[in-house]
Design a protein around this nucleic acid. Sequence first.
DNA 1: ATTCCCGTTGTTACCGCTACCAATGACAAG
DNA 2: CTTGTCATTGGTAGCGGTAACAACGGGAAT
Lengths: 368, 368
Amino acid sequence: MRKPTRRRHGTVTIQHVAQQAGVSAMTVSRVINRESNVRESTRASVLEAIERLNYSPNTAARSLAAGEALHLGLLYANPSAAYLSQFLVGALEGARRAGCHVVLESCGSESADEQAEATRRFATSGVDGVILPPPLSESMPVHHELAAAGMPVVTVAMGLPQPGALNVRIDDRAAAAAMTRHLLELGHRDIGFIVGHPNNTASAERLAGFRAALEEAGLDAEAAPTEQGYFTYRSGLVAAERLLARDPRPTAIFASNDDMAAAAISVAHRQGLDVPRDVSVVGYDDTAPATTVWPELTTVRQPVAAMAEAAVELLLTDLRARRAETPTPGTEIVLEYDLVLRESSAPPPRTEKKKQGRTPGGRVGARG
Amino acid sequence: MRKPTRRRHGTVTIQHVAQQAGVSAMTVSRVINRESNVRESTRASVLEAIERLNYSPNTAARSLAAGEALHLGLLYANPSAAYLSQFLVGALEGARRAGCHVVLESCGSESADEQAEATRRFATSGVDGVILPPPLSESMPVHHELAAAGMPVVTVAMGLPQPGALNVRIDDRAAAAAMTRHLLELGHRDIGFIVGHPNNTASAERLAGFRAALEEAGLDAEAAPTEQGYFTYRSGLVAAERLLARDPRPTAIFASNDDMAAAAISVAHRQGLDVPRDVSVVGYDDTAPATTVWPELTTVRQPVAAMAEAAVELLLTDLRARRAETPTPGTEIVLEYDLVLRESSAPPPRTEKKKQGRTPGGRVGARG
DNA sequence: ATTCCCGTTGTTACCGCTACCAATGACAAG
DNA sequence: CTTGTCATTGGTAGCGGTAACAACGGGAAT
């Protein structure tokens, strides 16, 4: 007579895999966790058994047995809900795959004290590591507080990460340069630039990419009209008004994010200018505003969800390495970006310069 | 010599609580899970021990032992990122507390076939129940598909849920009526209304509340100017243009969500009208657009995060009841709303009617 | 040949909690 | 007094993994 068991039928366990592969459960566990001391032939047969049985480990059992990291903190203070929700989609997918939990904490204000306070509260709430999306990735109070708590951290979208840190980003400089080249190819020679928040190193990278592309084309990058923005819609209004009041008026505006680009379109419309006939406007990020405004924005697509997923994996790898006391050096992951060509960019109004054909819309791959 | 143990120091387990309370671990487990067959005095002493030791159950162990539901599906097709991210914040918090996972799936298009396809894919991906935020809560293809798969479902923000279903909502009719009363108290008598998406039962509820408040004030609700909208910014532009072209021009516009209200403000500005001096504009939801536009919107705040959290709890309760074969009747949770008075509403421009003072900004509690 | 070492694999004992069933005692019915 | 029922409580055996250590076999060193 068989012993009674509570095992739910239909679930494949590590035991089944072990039997199928003709090894012990322990060996299967080693393969799953990518431990090095497994013979290559053994690993192969285990992987084949896993494949054949369509096995996936039970995350509850795994974390119970290993006493593993379960809670990843996500500290956010992002004014852009569109960015946050995309980010969450990726973070959740990564967490689900790894069988861990995401804990959200809002770090509302911009005041250093409140940021430190929120961070401390977070650090003591039992999370095992923290992911910092922009703009908090650049906040010194937050970093200090987390460092004091000895908390592992992964930053996302930091323009110039310090060496030895964990960071996920795209090549902002190259992306901004590529977008600038797009405008140059359309025939624009007088391009206004709205800079992002000055605390943000990615802002500087984007500006640098913009200038590099201008110089590459033989233009005077220093003379190009630039206005300071702060990534908000409101700041974009002010900056765009200043740019469009210049004489000569720029024929294109490159805003450092979509919110400010949307604001620039609004200002242009208010001044009776048609976009893109009279002035082209391009953005950065490819978040919701890019497609809710009219005309839809030509913009740089950041793979936000993929970046969040990569951040989760990176953090888990680091946590595992720490637990095994195998400290790894800082790692940086650089993902690829896309140039998304939509309706808001076109050749400049006809001047003495030669006219160029309109680039058709669509997505164009680019190196990242 | 003590047996070796892998127990991590510092963690309080159910054993400690049992010892502290002078009962067995099993009894503690019963108390935690709110089982009925525990003597009141025993329950009290266990609760006290839990309190004293600051015990919280290990979710991994719990779900491993119970073979419990682990993955809650969240199927979304929400055009508003602001709504989605708020919703996710609440859903995650609820899931974290319960020790389960949230799996996201986007149901991109509006085509019935694609919705059915996405739902089927979702239903077979191993989730144990599904949460449907608007607008999918009203999608018949999605409901059919989930019902066919025998999948437990909780809908959120359905205006008129069918009896026997699980639903979380606010009282849309009462909220819309309260907002309308606010405008009436400011002195408005000619209020234009932008209706939400016609597929959405909450839209009808809001319109009904609007009309009820008008009649309550002795006005002709049928004669009030209304325009159809679809919850999108674009549709708000069209509807607001029509409303503001009427003669006489309404002195206030009540849009069924914030996006359309923001569009109404934009249209007013383009026509040289000041908001709120020349025309008041109020919205619904209190999502991001409400505070990014200028002037900031007077609006109805839905407790989106709390609703998501409630949905998670409701779904888990239902799953537990199903597993125990104690089917519960459908439950509906109705949460409270707030009226948020900001800058976009003021008394109408002076007419033959008596002038009224400006209501100060701030949040005003309201019954839900 | 013996010893030692090391890479690879298996065995055992748990992780913290709950399903299942047995045990206990109180009380009503026979 | 015995028996049955019910409410309450405890003991045991897992859930599906992994840490720790033991076992094994083969080559290098002695």
